[in-house]
């Protein structure tokens, strides 16, 4: 059974929705070492898709293919295609500028990484890069993004203080605000709560569920409970291959591959 047919058998309360990102036969090479092996999957629009799997399985590598972060380092090579709907832009197509890709794919990193600037400037930066420089427009968009990232009430009185005065969880929500301020199509989360305490983690999780109303979310997580709590679709990866991809409900309760079952039941990984 190929992964796509798994996703087409979705049952259990998950709405069928249109595909946002269609990944086809995506392989990724670091030098001569193949890290991703012909991965194909359709990421549904306005849902949360989780990537799970043991360390080194390629889930973060896959995530970072989608905003071409690998282009920053030498010796990396992609094969296959990744089309973004509705316009069908091929992220990996010849002549595609990684900067154009990154303006449509926001990213939130493992460790909160605000710039050593003010809270306001952190959120405004992506907008400024895209040429917005009128104070009133910026004010409006910064406030909107901070509200959507559920941090507005905590920072509205100190927008011009340094972002580093915030707690870890607040910093991460600020980074989410920064990523969504430019209205990207997709936000990529790379283990966004692995550096946070449980309370901060649950706030981020609520936020991600809230975010899917207006943006497609792809999240890498080491935490299976987290994938179970917040994702609609889950992909299990192992040794650079996509082993199984389906609705979270089905994958956790009735996995079709023995490897998936072994992993989610804690027998390895």
């Amino acid at each position: 059974m190929n992964p796509q047919s798994a996703s087409s058998e979705v049952t259990g309360g998950v709405n069928q929705s249109s595909t946002k990102v269609r990944i086809e036969k995506l392989s990724f090479f670091y030098g001569t070492h193949q890290v991703l092996k012909s991965v194909s999957m359709d990421i549904p629009a306005l849902q949360v898709t989780a990537l799970i799997g043991p360390s080194g399985c390629g889930k973060t590598t896959l995530l970072r293919c989608l905003n071409r972060m690998h282009d920053l380092y030498p010796g990396n090579r992609y094969e296959g295609s990744v089309h973004v709907q509705p316009d069908g832009m091929d992220i990996l197509g010849p002549g595609m500028d990684p900067i154009q890709v990154r303006m449509r794919f926001g990213m939130v990193f493992q460790k909160p990484n605000p710039f050593p600037k003010s809270i306001y400037e952190n959120v405004a930066y992506g907008l400024r890069l895209q040429g917005m420089n009128k104070r009133r427009d910026l004010d409006e968009r910064v406030e909107k993004a901070l509200r959507e990232a559920a941090i507005w009430d905590e920072v509205k009185s100190r927008l011009h203080q340094m972002a580093h005065n915030l707690s870890g969880g607040q910093q991460q929500r600020l980074c989410i605000a920064r990523a969504i301020a430019t209205d990207p199509d997709v936000v990529l989360f790379d283990e966004p709560t692995s550096a946070l305490d449980p309370i901060a983690t649950s706030k981020i999780e609520e936020l991600i569920v809230e975010l899917k109303k207006r943006v497609t979310v792809l999240i890498v997580t080491h935490n299976l409970q987290q994938a179970g709590r917040i994702s609609d679709m889950t992909a299990f990866m192992y040794l650079g291959e996509l082993v199984e991809f389906g609705s979270t409900n089905q994958l956790f309760t009735n996995p079709s591959k023995p490897q998936t079952e072994d992993y989610i039941s804690g027998r390895f990984g």
Partner: peptide, 17 residues
């Protein structure tokens, strides 16, 4: 740190920016 550079690049900054 590398993740500060990556934060800028992920928002669509060029190397010069």
């Amino acid at each position: 740190p590398a993740n500060i550079r990556e934060a800028a690049f992920a928002l669509g900054a060029t190397r010069w920016q």
